[in-house]
């Protein structure tokens, strides 16, 4: 009986695993195709599409833009998110509960709606198709995540340790820099990684406010797929997945994901 159950559960896990990873596996295979169109399985093998992608100015421009934006977004997400999370967890002020629940509003609103709203504000402000515009738009997406992750890490820390430091003579800023922040490192790394990945992969909001002069990689990819499909698309997908995976691995290696999310 137990044997049977264990067989069932193993089959189940394998199945779920397949459903999740099958598309990725197919994309990976196609990225090494020698064909000039998307087909599975490919009729021949080559690395030529990797070369094509790396030589494609539109994609390389997009990659550069996305990378710059993602790094800035991650930094700002932390810089803005940390004080906000601190205030929401540690300080008592009127309306705290309301703000706490409003913070995650951008996560529950349809991205389409957000994009439309952002477009309507950004057009008159001249922020469309600019770095600051894209950074701001992405922050709308990433800040709620950063604040939530940091909020969780911060409340898991409790106040005892900080209070002990305070009674030993540490002023609030000293407590924060020497005690709270070092203990918060896993949360800081996790929230930054999430912001980095979210921004780098963001497409819906970006679609509203990119222009011919400033495109992100996902938008460039999306536009390209609209017109034609060849294994270049698969190559790009593989590269993007690899990048996200690398970030996740760095987090896992440095702090461990479970710990980073405050468990």
């Amino acid at each position: 009986m137990t044997k049977f159950l264990s067989f069932i559960s193993r089959t189940y896990v394998t199945l779920v695993f397949c459903i999740v990873f099958m598309p990725m596996a197919i994309i990976l295979v196609i990225s090494f195709s020698a064909d000039s169109y998307l087909s599975f399985p490919p009729s021949g093998w080559s690395l030529k599409w990797y070369g094509t992608v790396l030589g494609n100015t539109s994609f390389m421009q997009g990659f550069r833009n996305s990378a710059i934006i993602a790094v800035i977004v991650a930094a700002l997400s932390l810089a803005l998110g940390l004080p906000a999370a601190y205030a929401l967890v540690r300080l008592d002020f009127p309306g705290r509960a309301l703000i706490r629940s409003l913070v995650i509003a951008p996560l529950v609103l349809p991205a389409m709606m957000l994009g439309l709203g952002i477009l309507m504000v950004f057009t008159p402000a001249g922020l469309v198709a600019t770095y600051p515009g894209l950074v701001l738009a992405h922050l709308v997406m990433t800040l709620p995540f950063s604040i939530r992750i940091l909020q969780t890490s911060l409340s898991n820390l409790g106040t005892d340790v900080d209070e002990a430091a305070m009674t030993l003579g540490a002023r609030p800023l000293q407590v924060f820099m020497q005690i709270t922040l070092p203990r918060l490192t896993p949360g800081v790394i996790a929230s930054s990684a999430i912001a980095l990945i979210l921004s780098f992969d963001e497409i819906v909001l970006s679609l509203f406010i990119v222009g011919p002069r400033l495109q992100t990689l996902p938008v460039a990819l999306y536009r390209y797929v609209d017109e034609r499909t060849d294994p270049m698309v698969a190559v790009l997908a593989v590269l993007m997945i690899a990048l996200s995976l690398a970030i996740v691995l760095v987090v896992e290696r440095s702090v461990g994901f479970a710990k980073a999310f405050g468990r």
């Binding site: 005892d160 340790v161 209070e163 030993l168 540490a170």
Partner: peptide, 27 residues
Amino acid sequence: PWERNLGLVFQSYALFPHMTVAQNVAF
């Protein structure tokens, strides 16, 4: 509190986990 010169010991110990024992005491 930081100007009261007192020592506080909690049920939870509240040690600084990122410091050694000596660094904790020297804080």
